[in-house]
C-alpha cells in the first residue's frame, strides 16, 4: 500500500510542478484575492455595515470560492490525462513501474490540491467574517468541509473526463458542461418542472359584512370560492439536492437570528429548498370575518422552526456527485490502462 501511495505522491508532485506551478497560476490567485476583497466590500455595502453578524460575509465568500473554482477547475483538470498524452509524456510514465491507478488518482489529487489553493487565499476574509461574530464553529466546519468535498468532485469530473475523452479541448468543454449542469441545470430543470406541473387550488374565503359607509355589520358574508393553479415544486426539489450550492447550504444552515430568521445565505437557500418540499394545499380556507377584532395573527412557523420539519438532502446530493466523480475516474482508469486493447480511431498511444 505504501508503495502505491509513493507512486501517487510522485504523480502529484510531477503534476503540481509540471502543470500548475508557474506565473499564470499566481496571477490567477492574485486576481482571485482581489475579487474576494471586492465581494467583501460589496457585502458590507449591501448589508449596511457589519452589524453583529459575519454570517452574510462568511457565506458569500464561501459561495464565491465555489463559483470561481467551478469556473477554473474544469480548465485546470479537464485535460490532465489527454493533454499529457498529446504532449507525448503519458506513455513514458506508463512504461515505468507507475500503474494507471496511480496516474489517475495522482492527477485527481493534484487538481484537487490546486483548487484548494483558492480556498487558502480566502482564509483572511473568512477570518474577518468569523471575527465579526455570530458564525458558529459548526457552520465554519461544515461549510468548509463540504466546500472541500465539492472541489474534490469538480477535480474528479475534470480528470475523469480527460481520461474518457481523447481530445483535450472537447474534454475541457464537457467538464464545464457537467459542472454547469449541476450548478445551473438542476435549477432550470427544477423551475421548468414546477412550472409545467401545476395543481388546482380551491380557495374559500369568508369576508365580514360591511355597510355602504364602511362600518361593520353583524354577521358574515356568504363564503366565496375561487380557484387558481399552483406549481408542484415538491415533486422536483430532489433535483436541487444535487446542486453544489444547495449541498453546501443544506449542510451548513445552523445560524439564525433571535427572531428565527436565517443569518446567512446558507440558511436562506436551505430554507427555500425545504419550503419547496411542501406540496401546495389544494383546499385553502381563509375566514377573515371571525378573525375580526383579534387582528392578523401570524402563526406560520419561522424559518428556523420550518427547518426542523423538512427533509435534509445534502448527503444525497453529495452522494450523487461522488458517484458521478468516481464513475468518471473509474472510466478514465479503464480507458487509460495499458496494454491498450481497443482504441478510438485516429488516437495515438505515445
Amino acid at each position: 500500500m505504501s508503495a502505491f501511495l509513493r507512486g501517487v505522491g510522485l504523480i502529484v508532485a510531477l503534476e503540481l510542478k509540471q502543470r500548475v506551478r508557474g506565473v499564470a497560476w499566481y496571477v490567477i490567485l492574485g486576481v482571485f484575492f482581489g475579487l474576494i476583497a471586492v465581494v467583501t466590500i460589496g457585502v458590507w455595502v449591501i448589508t449596511g455595515g457589519w452589524g453583529t453578524s459575519g454570517g452574510a460575509l462568511f457565506s458569500s465568500v464561501v459561495y464565491f470560492v465555489l463559483l470561481l473554482s467551478s469556473l477554473i477547475s474544469p480548465a485546470l483538470s479537464g485535460n490532465a490525462i489527454n493533454g499529457e498524452r498529446e504532449g507525448g509524456t503519458l506513455a513514458t510514465i506508463q512504461v515505468t513501474a507507475i500503474t494507471t491507478g496511480q496516474i489517475v488518482i495522482g492527477k485527481w489529487l493534484a487538481a484537487w490540491l490546486a483548487s484548494l489553493a483558492l480556498l487558502v487565499v480566502t482564509l483572511p476574509f473568512l477570518a474577518i467574517a468569523v471575527g465579526i461574530g455570530a458564525v458558529s464553529a459548526a457552520t465554519v466546519a461544515s461549510s468548509l468541509a463540504i466546500l472541500t468535498a465539492e472541489l474534490g468532485v469538480f477535480a474528479a469530473l475534470g480528470v475523469g473526463l480527460s481520461g474518457l475523452i481523447r481530445k483535450p479541448l472537447f474534454s475541457v468543454v464537457v467538464s464545464y458542461l457537467v459542472v454547469a449542469a449541476l450548478s445551473i441545470g438542476t435549477l432550470i430543470a427544477f423551475a421548468i418542472g414546477g412550472a409545467v406541473t401545476q395543481t388546482t387550488v380551491t380557495q374559500t374565503t369568508v369576508e365580514s359584512n360591511y355597510s355602504v359607509d364602511g362600518s361593520p355589520l353583524a354577521g358574515c358574508a356568504a363564503p366565496s370560492t375561487s380557484t387558481y393553479s399552483a406549481p408542484r415544486f415538491d415533486l422536483y426539489w430532489g433535483l436541487l439536492a444535487a446542486n453544489p450550492y444547495v449541498v453546501v447550504a443544506d449542510a451548513s444552515y445552523g445560524d439564525f437570528t433571535s427572531s428565527g430568521q436565517p443569518n446567512d445565505l446558507f440558511g436562506t437557500i436551505a430554507y427555500g429548498v425545504r419550503q419547496a418540499q411542501i406540496p401546495p394545499e389544494t383546499e385553502r380556507f381563509d375566514d377573515y370575518c371571525h378573525m375580526n377584532g383579534n387582528g392578523y395573527v401570524d402563526d406560520r412557523p419561522t424559518p428556523q422552526e420550518a427547518m426542523r420539519s423538512g427533509v435534509p438532502s445534502w448527503f444525497v446530493g453529495l452522494g450523487i456527485q461522488a458517484v458521478l466523480g468516481a464513475a468518471a475516474l473509474f472510466g478514465a482508469w479503464r480507458f487509460t490502462r495499458t496494454p491498450s486493447g481497443r482504441l478510438a480511431s485516429g488516437s495515438r498511444i505515445a
Partner: peptide
C-alpha cells in the same frame, strides 16, 4: 508490471515535461 522494469523504451515522439 514484470516486463516494464526490464525494458527501456525510446518513443518516436519527442515528449518531455516542459517545466521540469
Amino acid at each position: 508490471h514484470r516486463v516494464r522494469p526490464l525494458i527501456g523504451w525510446m518513443p518516436d515522439a519527442l515528449g518531455s515535461w516542459n517545466n521540469l
